[in-house]
C-alpha cells in the first residue's frame, strides 16, 4: 500500500513535465477489430440498396422487427472522419433468413419478403453514416445478434466486421464474439441498442463508430508487399 501511494506521489510530481506531450498528441483511437464476413453477403444484391432497410422501394408494408436507427461515423486512428467511404450492411431478417439464395432457398415460407436485408451508404465529410434497419436477432449457430459491415473506398475494401448488441446474453456463447479478441476488442464491436424516448413504435437507436486501422493511402503503399 505504501508503495502505491508513493508511486502516486511521484507521478503527481512529474506531471508538469509531461503534460505538454499530451497536449500535442493527436487523438488516439483503437481500430475496430476485423471479423469474418460470413457466408451470406448477398449473392444477388437487391434492386433497392438504399439506407432504409425497413421499406423496399415504394412498398406500403414495412419489415417485421424492431426498428433501429443504426448510425455512426467512420474514422481514422487519429479520430478524423473518413469521407467518401462506402459502408454496406447486411443482416438476417426478423425470422432469421438472410438475403442469400443459399440461406433463403430452403426458407421461403419463413423469409420476411419486406425486409431489404442489405443497405449501402456513402459518407460525407463528417464521416457519418445512417441506416434504418431492424434490431438484429440471433441466427442458428450464432447466438449473438449482429449486423455485418463492410467499409470500402472505391473498389478497395478497407474493413469487414460485425456489430453486436452490448450486453446481449448470447454474446458470451457466440464463436465469432469469443474469438474477436480480449475485453478491449469486445468493447469495439458492440453498440448500445437504446429505446428511443417517446417513440410510439418502440424504436431503437444504436451508435457504432468504426475506426479503420490505416488510411486508404497507407494501404496503397502497402499493397504491393501484401499481394
Amino acid at each position: 500500500m505504501h508503495l502505491i501511494s508513493r508511486r502516486r506521489a511521484l507521478a503527481a510530481g512529474s506531471l508538469s513535465l509531461w503534460t505538454t506531450k499530451g497536449l500535442f498528441a493527436e487523438q488516439l483511437m483503437l481500430p475496430t477489430p476485423r471479423l469474418t464476413e460470413g457466408p451470406f453477403y448477398p449473392d444477388h444484391l437487391p434492386l433497392d440498396q438504399d439506407n432504409d432497410l425497413i421499406v423496399i422501394k415504394d412498398s406500403t408494408t414495412p419489415a417485421v422487427g424492431e426498428i433501429t436507427h443504426f448510425t455512426g461515423r467512420i474514422l481514422s486512428r487519429s479520430g478524423s472522419p473518413i469521407r467518401n467511404a462506402t459502408i454496406e450492411i447486411w443482416q438476417c431478417d426478423a425470422n432469421a433468413v438472410y438475403l442469400h439464395s443459399a440461406d433463403s432457398n430452403g426458407k421461403k415460407d419463413q423469409q420476411d419478403k419486406h425486409f431489404q436485408g442489405y443497405g449501402k451508404f456513402e459518407t460525407a465529410s463528417d464521416g457519418g453514416y445512417r441506416f434504418r434497419t431492424i434490431k438484429p436477432v440471433p441466427y442458428p449457430g450464432r447466438p449473438a445478434p449482429h449486423i455485418h459491415i463492410k467499409v470500402s473506398a472505391g473498389d478497395r475494401e478497407l474493413l469487414t466486421t460485425q456489430c453486436m448488441i452490448r450486453g446481449h446474453e448470447g454474446n458470451s456463447r457466440d464463436g465469432v464474439f469469443r474469438s474477436a479478441g480480449d475485453v478491449v476488442d469486445h468493447e469495439l464491436i458492440q453498440a448500445d441498442f437504446k429505446k428511443v424516448p417517446d417513440s410510439k413504435l418502440d424504436e431503437y437507436s444504436a451508435v457504432f463508430d468504426i475506426v479503420l486501422g490505416r488510411t486508404p493511402d497507407d494501404r496503397q503503399i502497402e499493397r504491393p508487399r501484401n499481394s
Binding site: 481500430p31 476485423r34 464476413e37 475494401e157 474493413l159 479478441g181 486501422g213
Partner: peptide, 23 residues
C-alpha cells in the same frame, strides 16, 4: 451454418486493415 472461420472471408483483400493488425 453461418459461422465461417474467424477472420476468414476475403482476408486477402484486406490484409493489414482493421483490428488484429494493430490491436
Amino acid at each position: 451454418g453461418e459461422q465461417g472461420g474467424p477472420r476468414g472471408g476475403n482476408r486477402g483483400m484486406q490484409n493489414g486493415f482493421g483490428g488484429p493488425g494493430r490491436n
